[in-house]
Amino acid sequence: MVSLTADDVKKIAHLARLGIEEKDVASYTNDLSGMLDLMTQMSDLDTDNVEPMAHPMDQVQRLRADVVTEQDKREKFQAIAPQVEAGLYLVPKVIE
């Protein structure tokens, strides 16, 4: 049985910049431990000489000519942003 602690879960949530409510920490801890348990089955299989597979067809990234293909859609994209000003996306002050 793999088990995570509540602190582990809070640390992972911080890495993901994901707010989770204090009252839910216990259930996430329990669920994630259950998932990790399921995953320990993977160690039943010897994979020493197996190459990891990232793509179903082992396809590599396609290359294309280095030319501009996208049109400027800045206004369209900014129209759906939570907060913009003078063509910039606004966030709370980062530098003091």
Binding site: A13, L18, M39, M42, P52, M53
Partner: peptide, 25 residues
């Protein structure tokens, strides 16, 4: 949360790479 954990330092090989090897099998 699960994905972040599986990709985090120290667990990447044990989970993510292992799973990709099983994917090939």
């Amino acid at each position: 949360l699960m994905g972040t954990y599986a990709l985090s330092t120290g667990y990447y090989d044990a989970y993510y790479i292992k799973a990709q090897k099983i994917r090939r099998l």
